[in-house]
Simulated assay, not measured.
Amino acid sequence: MAVPRLQTFGQSAAAKKVIAQAIGYADGAHEIAHIHHRAQLIYAAGGIVRVITPGGLWMLKPGMALLIGTQIEHELHMVGQTALRTLYIDPEALPPLGSDCRMIALDDLLRASILSMCATGEGSDAEAIEQRAALIVPLILHLLAERLAGAPTAADDEVRLALPENPRLRTICDSLIADAANADTLEQWAERTGA
């Protein structure tokens, strides 16, 4: 991955435990490698998101969200028209993550809470949004803490592909992630990577 850029949210958001954002992406869009001072919960309300960290590739499927720890370099790749809903969470408001990322199963209550935090319908005033957040944020933090208290399950590994640390092998994996239809032979890869 390239040198990551740091995303910040400014002084007005610094005191908030949770910052919500709703973003629509076209098929094939991607966010370059970056890090946050906050943990990030990513939920694709529509489409599929591939998240790449130094430790693996995560596929977000319906009903799941990915919690990325603070200061973890990551990039996002969209498959299909994607409706991304994301929460940036003060890391001190969460129990320790224990690893760089954790899959979170979404029940109806957590899903609705995330969507409500990200909804800023036309005509919504700042005071109404703040009042809604004051009610929803403690609930979201409680629900996430419950899920983080449990051990990771086999389902976590079903959506994560570990990526190698060896630079030559990582080059091949990164190329295949970028172009899964690549049909190069083992000999071509060996020549290209010096193996």
Results as ranks from 00 to 15, higher is better:
residue 160 R to D: 02
residue 33 A to R: 11
residue 162 A to G: 07
residue 8 T to L: 12
residue 123 G to D: 12
residue 53 T to K: 01
residue 48 I to P: 05
residue 147 R to A: 01
residue 147 R to T: 00
residue 52 I to A: 05
residue 27 D to T: 13
residue 9 F to I: 05
residue 178 A to H: 07
residue 109 L to E: 15
residue 101 C to M: 02
residue 87 L to D: 00
residue 59 M to W: 14
residue 94 L to T: 11
residue 64 M to T: 13
residue 183 A to T: 12
residue 27 D to N: 15
residue 118 C to P: 00
residue 57 L to V: 03
residue 192 R to P: 11
residue 105 A to D: 04
residue 146 E to S: 10
residue 36 H to C: 03
residue 148 L to W: 05
residue 6 L to P: 02
residue 32 I to P: 14
residue 109 L to N: 14
residue 42 I to L: 14
residue 191 E to D: 13
residue 39 A to P: 04
residue 71 Q to W: 07
residue 168 R to N: 10
residue 189 W to E: 01
residue 149 A to Q: 09
residue 195 A to S: 13
residue 12 S to M: 09
residue 121 G to N: 08
residue 40 Q to K: 04
residue 77 H to P: 05
residue 126 A to N: 09
residue 6 L to C: 10
residue 177 I to G: 04
residue 34 H to Y: 01
residue 187 E to L: 07
residue 101 C to I: 03
residue 164 P to G: 02
residue 194 G to H: 06
residue 194 G to V: 07
residue 126 A to L: 07
residue 4 P to K: 10
residue 16 K to W: 06
residue 192 R to I: 12
residue 31 E to N: 09
residue 118 C to E: 00
residue 6 L to S: 09
residue 137 V to H: 12
residue 83 A to I: 00
residue 32 I to V: 15
residue 195 A to V: 12
residue 178 A to P: 07
residue 61 K to Y: 13
residue 79 V to W: 11
residue 194 G to C: 08
residue 87 L to T: 01
residue 97 L to Q: 01
residue 41 L to S: 02
residue 178 A to N: 09
residue 171 T to L: 05
residue 93 A to P: 03
residue 97 L to A: 00
residue 103 M to C: 13
